[in-house]
Design a protein around this nucleic acid. Structure first.
Lengths: 145, 145
DNA sequence: CAGTATCCGTTAGGATACTG
DNA sequence: CAGTATCCTAACGGATACTG
């Protein structure tokens, strides 16, 4: 063992390419994960409830993400022998410990949307450029709500 | 202006399919965004510095994400007329306000990697299943670091 | 150094149809 | 209701080559 102490030393570093926490970060720093965990924070939800609350999510995507969250230990899946069958998803203790940062990220997004739109308007107005900024899905067309 | 007060009322809701903050959440709740913002939190970085610090990121991906962060007002891009030219990226005030939640997400990932791996081992061991859990990239093979 | 451009494989994710 | 199974396309993202 090392002679140098490392009390609060993490064993993992997301900045290292081969660190196993890099793929995990990809699962956690994810739009659907943030929305699902945020929804489950209040109480257990049935599949259909989640599907309705998280508007626009397809059952395929919701299922896939719930499975991933379950496998990683953030969510439990309980099948109730009713008829028709219902399935309840709830956060584990691990999932609950993950929720605050994710909720903070989502709330930040909701709270600073105006600032961001102002910044985009500035960026898109300033000449200097010619080509688009890529990565961004949906540059302008988003009127409805 | 409204007669009903709405002091802490958000105008945006990420759970609504058509809310413009949904795409923004996708930009922010993102692996690369978390790593870039986390790196820039300490100080301004040159492009090459970021590229080296965030191991494994390609210049294409790094450039695309930096452009998006710049357009959304999180990052400034300053070109220094040196030879060869160097470019400095730094957080704006807006970006700095976004950093704490993102750093929290990354640190959570680093700190709970062991818990997650234990959960995965449990999940993958328990029978009941047959097919894989999808979504997850890289199920087991990740020895190096 | 800090990009841009191009080719190209892999994956996310929508739509649809079917099952216990 | 809560899935699973396909099909299909749009993007993400790696690799490589070229430029001011």
């Amino acid at each position: 063992m090392e002679t140098t102490d490392d009390q609060h030393e993490h064993h993992y570093d997301a900045y290292l390419a081969q660190c196993p926490c890099r793929p995990l970060l990809d699962v956690i720093a994810n739009k659907w994960t943030a929305l699902i965990v945020g929804a489950l924070l209040t109480r257990e939800h049935r599949f259909g409830e989640l599907r309705r609350q998280i508007e626009g999510v397809s059952q395929k995507v919701l299922t896939a993400n719930l499975r991933a969250l379950e496998r990683n230990g953030f969510v439990t899946r309980r099948v109730y022998p009713t008829s028709p069958p219902s399935v309840g998803y709830a956060l584990t203790d691990l999932g609950r410990s993950l929720a605050p940062p994710l909720v903070a990220v989502r709330e930040w997004t909701e709270r600073h949307m105006d600032d961001v739109e102002a910044a985009r308007a500035r960026y898109d107005t300033e000449a200097t450029r010619s080509g688009p900024a890529a990565v961004d899905r949906a540059a302008e067309p988003a009127p409805a709500r």
